[in-house]
Design a protein around this nucleic acid. Structure first.
Lengths: 243, 243
DNA sequence: CGATTGATTGAAGGTCCTCAACAGAGGTGG
DNA sequence: CCACCTCTGTTGAGGACCTTCAATCAATCG
């Protein structure tokens, strides 16, 4: 498990190699970056909107999310992240955060100086290409989320969001396809889908009755990924083979 | 007006210079790319979902949008574009389109070979940085759209989307702040906000009665941008000074 | 062990959708 | 050149989906 690597670099290199070929020099340069590891509890805000960001945050183990807040105080989660994800590629090139980043579970993270990573992205074409692709896939996922909250009904919307997250957890690592635990509270699911926690609860009951998942403490457990995919017509093409 | 430039390169260079400093060599290399200009009518599909893309599309003059379709056939517009925008930065590094690109009005465009632009992005740090920033701002706008469709009510949602587009039109060029014409049909506004055209019509009436805008043939006209901004609590920070 | 967080269910209500009809503008073909 | 047709905008009525408010219960935690 990534949590046991004492080199956070290993997780980043593994992720980037899935996105572009890296030669030994590239890997050596990535490994030589100064990582500052940290173990953080659930619900910790890692980056807050409006702040100036000098460190990029790598998620080594655990779950995290990014969210924004509307003028009247309502919260919208705009993405979830799994082990290996770079939580804020955008801070390679944009100095000010336009949203919050927060842990969903207890997590192991590592901070990397943004200017050092930016220098590698600009100087080393392979690393640049890998980070480019990561950022562009990120954007593709946002587009799918706009479609998800804009045009799907509540049940389908929740099923689609969970299907995506399950697909990304599977791509990132170990777990088996079924009985996959996603540690999201119903309020977090609501904030990610633009619904209320009460309505999420009712829709989860439907998905449970359909045999797609079960509800556990502080999370849902995918019981039949095939059924969940079918309910949401989930097509992973937009993940661009990152999953 | 950009439409009169016989060099589409001028528009691209002007855009990228707002995002990062370009030295004379950078500009010369950008100008030397083989642009293939084309005049297209409104409603022309420039890129379709699933296709393999070898040319990037630059919007020289006019309006365009990108959209996706859900499994049950409902359409969601995920972004609008104005003169100077690169319509598909993502195809620098992702070969297959995950959404459609379509003109909203008659438009002048120019095609650029993706591999040539990609080579510049990887070899020339300044150009790379400018394109990076463009892609990352793109993603920031998508995040705001997720919030918009997820957490704002219909009236505020429409006002916010129109405020953003107005801000970007103003940043891109000439027009004066008020009496700014946005050539979107009510159905296009509906597809961008996750609403129905009927409900958009009713909300536009409210915005009209509030003095924020007027409805014209195939479009809306911003009459009081300040009021529209106030209604939607529009804060352009997420455009990262691109507007 | 009280307090807090999260899950669950019910009832009532509101925002937005669906269906429907019609008017006006613009384009096209006979 | 005008009839026709399509596209867009507009308005009304009814209903569905989701929200809001509320109460209860279980689990976790200081």
């Amino acid at each position: 498990m990534p949590a046991n690597d004492n080199e956070p670099a290993a997780g980043l290199i593994r992720k980037l190699r899935r996105l572009a070929p890296l030669d030994p020099d590239d890997r050596q340069l990535l490994a030589a970056l100064p990582y500052r590891p940290e173990a953080v509890p659930a619900g910790r805000v890692l980056v807050s909107e409006g702040s100036i960001v000098a460190q990029c945050c790598l998620l080594v183990d655990g779950y995290a999310c990014r969210h924004k807040t509307s003028a009247d105080g309502k919260r919208q989660i705009v993405s979830f992240h799994v082990a290996g994800d770079l939580l804020d590629v955008q801070h390679l090139m944009l100095e000010r955060a336009d949203h919050d980043v927060e842990t969903v579970t207890a997590a192991d993270i590592a901070w990397v100086p943004a200017d050092r990573l930016r220098a590698l992205a600009l100087d080393r074409p392979n690393i640049g290409q890998a980070l480019w692709r990561d950022a562009l896939i990120d954007a593709s996922v946002f587009r799918e989320w706009v479609l998800n909250v804009g045009r799907r009904d509540a049940r389908t919307r929740i099923a689609h969001m969970l299907s995506e997250l399950a697909a990304r957890v599977l791509a990132a690592g170990a777990a088996s396809e079924d009985h996959l635990l996603l540690p999201l509270t119903q309020e977090q699911i609501a904030d990610a889908t633009g619904l209320t926690a009460v309505h999420v609860n009712r829709m989860l009951r439907q998905l449970r009755e359909a045999g797609a998942l079960s509800v556990v403490a502080r999370g849902v457990c995918i019981e039949d990924f095939g059924r969940l995919r079918a309910i949401s017509s989930f097509d992973p093409a937009y993940l661009h083979a990152a999953a």
